[in-house]
């Protein structure tokens, strides 16, 4: 496998705000790479610098060995892009949009290419529909296949599934996986940790313009070093001291009655918890044991919840 994306010390300021702060990473050919971070973390800025839309204040981006800056023209045929906020010409049909964008690359779509793009996005029935009659999911999928008309090797998808229902989201994941199976390299941004976990081979967790961790999702979770996540509610507030006794080294006390603790031996921790509760006449509700997730990694690394 060879490195196809090489980003070094990328920096971008907006006035006093350091939106992207010395970001460096590499991506292998054929990977699905995700930027995971809350709104305003700097994901879009980072992506759009790599696409040649925004000028960096420092650092460099190499796509297949070609530097994007100062002359982004050179990578235009190499990349396909779905921007975060996509809108189309409302008075054109799905087919007309695809033909138009292909022609902007100096290409003519064959009937076969058109059919395969439409079927990939499940838009065969909609080929002659005006774009303003499409559902949110259909629009997003149209944006994705519009990014494919020039047969790019590297595909940038900025929040491809934001605002979609779970079913539509899964549909988009299938498309992205199909692209990967065709050898494309995909870089996407998301603030859904399920998306990062299920879809991305590697994720960069980004917060306030900085990459705070970068690895395979499972490895990031393993690095937390916690086997289980126990969440529950109680009828009375619990003291943190009490929680600490549960054997959870880093207990997290949530506001009000909801608690989350991490334990290496969940069975033992729950035993202790229930015992104590009984002694003190506290009733434990909604007891739930799960594996830690990227959410927890994010929380651990930044002290913040991923979603607001």
């Amino acid at each position: 496998m060879s490195i196809i994306v090489d980003v070094q010390d990328l920096t971008k300021r907006y006035g006093d705000l350091l939106a992207v702060n010395k970001v460096s990473f590499t991506i292998e050919q054929g990977e699905i790479f995700g930027f995971l971070g809350p709104n305003g973390a700097g994901k879009t800025t980072c992506l759009e610098i790599m696409e040649g839309l925004r000028k960096p204040d420092g650092g460099q981006v190499l796509l297949k060995g070609q530097s994007v800056w100062p002359d982004p023209k050179k990578v235009k045929n190499l990349i396909g892009v779905q921007l975060q906020s996509t809108s189309f010409y409302e008075e054109l049909t799905v087919k007309e949009i695809l033909v138009l964008f292909a022609s902007l690359y100096g290409r003519k779509l064959s009937g076969l290419q058109l059919d395969s793009l439409l079927s990939m996005a499940g838009l065969e029935e909609k080929r002659n529909a005006y774009t303003n009659s499409l559902s949110g999911g259909q629009k997003q999928r149209l944006a994705i296949i519009t990014a494919l008309v020039n047969e790019p090797e590297i595909i940038f998808l900025d929040e491809p599934t934001t605002g979609l229902d779970p079913q539509a989201r899964r549909r988009s994941w299938e498309i992205i996986q199909e692209l990967q199976s065709k050898g494309k390299t995909i870089i996407l941004t998301t603030h859904y940790m399920e998306e990062a976990e299920n879809l991305c081979e590697r994720v960069a967790i980004i917060d306030q313009g900085k990459i705070v961790a970068i690895d395979q999702p499972q490895k990031l979770i393993d690095q937390l070093g916690k086997k289980a996540k126990i969440s529950f509610a109680s009828t009375r507030p619990l003291e943190s001291l009490f929680l600490a006794k549960l054997g959870a080294e880093a207990g997290q006390v949530n506001s009000g009655e909801g608690h989350v603790i991490f334990a290496n031996d969940p069975a033992q921790a729950i035993g202790v918890l229930l015992e104590k509760a009984k002694q003190e006449g506290i009733i434990i509700k909604n007891l739930h044991v799960s594996s830690p997730s990227l959410d927890d990694v994010f929380l651990e690394l930044t002290g913040k919840e991923l979603r607001d």
Binding site: L53, V81, S87
Partner: peptide, 16 residues
């Protein structure tokens, strides 16, 4: 309108 809706940005990504 196209500029405001970001369509021109999308077009700018193409080599046209």
């Amino acid at each position: 309108t196209e500029r405001e809706k970001g369509i021109l940005r999308r077009v700018k990504l193409t080599p046209v």
